[in-house]
């Protein structure tokens, strides 16, 4: 496995914190959007977009680029923040989230936003679409990799399991699926709404290679992404235990912050809390946020 320096890990963690702040500001500015799932996915998306994926912001349609499908499309604010900071479009444009004629729609739109590989928002689609992309790459002997980020509540949608069967049947080892297992969905804890456990065994039963990590530990994330590259003949899923609303005390694990904009005071407090450097203990700690 590739060695990653502490410096890289720390820089990525700091980048994630920055993206969290930007996402909160965007949601505050639009007075609409989904903070909880944006914050939980921040480290995962940072690792992908600022480290793992082969991308060229100057050439968003570069055929060789790795692909990202944010199946949990409501985390769009974080995705947009990352794409802007990665250079796909001007950072000032982030202010236009959810406004008329904006390129930044409420949910990702591949026809409007540079760097968005697939339209998303209605939950459940991303896995099968990702499988199709991965299949296409294999047919053309292309080397790009397809990444799909799923929410955990999304695993209740049957079409996810249809996609899981496809990817296993076609031995798609060029797809990596990451489950942002934050344990909370719109109306409450996943375990109350519709339990999805045992999640690791489920994926194994569907024929997948499973890696389980702490989804706010940057080193574990990038190591897992590397490990997935080395799995052959089988698709890989990374089960990332995360915390919904991660980094903002009053949002953490609260389903009420699934899709709600903060007040001016709340926004200020959130930004303050997120300005503190990522907690070293947390970055190294055990899986905590999930179920």
């Amino acid at each position: 496995m590739v060695y990653h320096s502490d410096e890289l890990v720390a820089a990525l963690a700091e980048r994630a914190a920055q993206l969290r702040r930007t996402a909160i500001e965007m949601i505050y500015c639009a007075q609409s959007g989904h903070p909880g799932g944006s914050l939980s996915a921040a480290d995962l998306l940072t690792a992908l977009l600022f480290h793992k994926m082969r991308l060229d912001p100057a050439n968003p349609g570069w055929p060789e680029r790795d692909r990202l499908i944010l199946s949990k499309g409501h985390a769009a604010p974080l995705l947009y923040a990352a794409l802007a900071q990665r250079g796909f479009f001007p950072i000032e444009e982030l202010k236009t989230l959810r406004q008329l004629d904006s390129r930044l729609q409420g949910h990702p739109d591949r026809l409007k936003t540079p760097g968005v590989d697939m339209t998303a928002g209605a939950l459940g689609h991303g896995l099968a679409i990702g499988a199709g992309l991965a299949l296409s790459a294999r047919l053309d002997n292309q080397t790009f990799r397809t990444y799909v980020v799923l929410g955990d509540g999304e695993l209740q949608a049957g079409v996810i399991w249809e996609g899981a069967l496809f990817a296993a049947k076609y031995h798609l080892d060029n797809i990596t699926v990451i489950v942002d297992l934050n344990g909370v969905q719109l109306d409450g804890p996943v375990r109350d709404i519709m339990p999805i456990e045992p999640i690791v065994d489920k994926w194994r039963s569907f024929g997948w290679y499973v890696i389980e990590i702490h989804g706010h530990n940057m080193r574990q994330i990038i190591d897992a992404l590397d490990e997935a590259d080395d799995i052959h003949g089988q698709p890989t899923v990374i089960i990332a235990h995360t915390t919904k609303g991660k980094g903002v005390s009053f949002m953490e694990n609260q389903c009420t912050w699934h899709g709600r904009a903060p007040s001016p005071e709340q926004c200020q407090q959130a930004i303050c809390e997120l300005a503190v450097s990522p907690d070293a203990a947390d970055a190294a700690g055990p899986a905590g946020g999930g179920q």
């Binding site: 099968a128 679409i129 199709g132 992309l133 991965a134 296409s136 053309d140 079409v159 996609g163 496809f166």
Partner: peptide
Amino acid sequence: AEAGMVDLAVGLALGG
């Protein structure tokens, strides 16, 4: 698995 099939096709279309 018709629903999944359509999404799979979407992915294939994205791949050209």
